[in-house]
């Protein structure tokens, strides 16, 4: 059982292992997207007008953006925010013509594993509960898998004790 279920959950273990590392370092990087920032100046009129969408498309040409324009709005009187496809966006100061574009690109593997790690729906919640149950099962069955000096009564027991002591020490000392 330990072996067969272990094979079955190899993929899930990789998903949680990779996303665990990625999400542990949220303050150091964006684990879902790589972000490219481009600063620019423009003389285009981006204030509210009947031709605003035409002017936005001209701006996209100016900053050499080949993707799709989605929507825009004015967070305040002197700023326009333009949304592009894929989560990218452009902010332009209407008074000074200074703008900043943030182009997002999904990180191929990390985006998907992080998506699953955050429990996207009920179906995945139940599946990951089963995975968590399997981990408990692995821990218990591993106690009886190897007998003798290398088993729980010998070296294995020392490793098991260390693995329990480290989190307890952390809780006591933190």
């Amino acid at each position: 059982m330990h072996r067969d279920i272990g094979f079955f959950f190899i993929g899930t273990s990789l998903i949680y292992g990779l996303s665990g590392i990625a999400l542990n370092h949220l303050s150091d990087w964006n684990p879902n997207y790589s972000v490219e920032v481009q600063e620019f100046n423009t003389s285009l009129n981006l204030k509210k007008s009947p031709v605003i969408e035409k002017n936005i498309l001209e701006l996209m040409d100016e900053i050499n953006y080949k993707g799709e324009y989605k929507k825009h709005y004015y967070p305040d009187k002197s700023t326009i925010k333009i949304f592009l496809d894929g989560g990218s966006s452009v902010l332009v100061n209407l008074d000074r013509g200074y703008g900043k574009a943030e182009f997002l690109k999904k990180r191929p593997v990390f985006y998907s594993v992080n998506y699953l790690h955050y429990n996207p729906n009920d179906w995945w919640m139940w599946f990951s509960d089963i995975f968590a149950g399997a981990l408990i099962l692995f821990a218990i069955t591993s106690l009886f898998m190897v007998r003798g000096k290398k088993g729980i009564a010998g070296r294995g027991g020392v490793y098991a004790a260390l693995g329990i002591i480290i989190p307890i020490l952390f809780l006591l000392l933190h």
């Binding site: 879902n32 989605k70 929507k71 989560g87 998506y115 955050y118 729906n121």
Partner: peptide, 12 residues
């Protein structure tokens, strides 16, 4: 309760 798709960003 469930996760929103990132693809919604910028959509009306």
């Amino acid at each position: 309760d469930e996760r929103f798709s990132d693809d919604l960003m910028g959509s009306e």
